[in-house]
Design a protein around this nucleic acid. Structure first.
Lengths: 142, 142
DNA sequence: TGTAATACCTCTAGTCACTAGAGGTTCAAG
DNA sequence: CTTGAACCTCTAGTGACTAGAGGTATTACA
């Protein structure tokens, strides 16, 4: 049986975050000592590892919870799990693509004025002028 | 003079968000009509474009505000602007690297069980087992 | 057995960057 | 002059925690 601190050390999830997960229903309420302190078994440890890993992969807690509810499921139900992973993969790829765009722009901006600042700074200018992505201002007010 | 709705259309920043920026001091309080509605001039429009662009680049509002305070600054002060942009570039590159790792792992997970679900699903298994990044559990409890 | 340090407990409130809604007022077009 | 869209303020909610206050339990050591 582990204390909450043990669980934290074993999983890398901070103590208040473990309590937070419990409050959100992601971890079941564990047993307590006579002094009211939480004690966790191996199943709880495994479950927290699962949550941590899902979060590391960028899944929102709702998705993690959906996956947890599929534990032990069989057959067609598992398509949900598969779907969540696939959706997340698409999302990650999308984020990478957008960050690449930012990288280019920032690299351009920082290179434009490296060191000598007796003129109007290119960094501020670049921000004011707006970048390549807003050539048509007002479009895509997402 | 633009209404807040005009400003929103021209910059792609939503109306409540514009009021939010004002409340945070990123936009100065504009003039009002006799009926108490906001009216913005060209300077406000430019400033909001600046904010939007900074946010698009992933800067937190605090950094955007720091850059705004440098408007019109000269010489060494501008090193701050340059520094913010460079820090953000490093941050973006870091995020891209980490997302690439996730992409690999997610691609692996989703490919492992594509369609046939008569066995224990690889997606759930992968989450439970933890991924390549936690080969040494408990390390780096960041 | 005493004591001191550390870990634990609950609860509230704060973070960031918005977003949603209620309930009311003003503007612009016809 | 009316109607409907756009505006106003204010409060509260989102996600995923994090920080702090004020108090109790456990544990290691003397």
């Amino acid at each position: 049986m582990h204390s909450i601190g043990d669980l934290s050390r074993l999983t890398g999830v901070k103590v208040p975050t473990i309590r937070f997960y419990e409050s959100k229903g992601l971890l079941p309420e564990p047993g307590r000592t006579t002094g009211n302190q939480r004690r966790y078994d191996a199943a709880a440890l495994k479950r927290l590892h699962f949550i941590r890993h899902g979060r590391d992969l960028g899944l929102p807690l709702a998705d993690v919870q959906a996956l947890l509810s599929l534990e032990g499921a069989k057959g067609p139900d598992l398509n949900r799990a598969h779907e969540i992973a696939k959706r997340q993969l698409a999302d990650v790829r999308d984020r990478i693509a957008r960050l690449r765009g930012l990288e280019l722009e920032l690299a351009h901006i920082t290179k434009a004025c490296d060191g000598h600042h007796d003129h109007v700074c290119a960094v501020l200018q670049a921000f004011t002028d707006c970048g390549p992505r807003c050539a048509n201002p007002g479009a895509d007010p997402d």
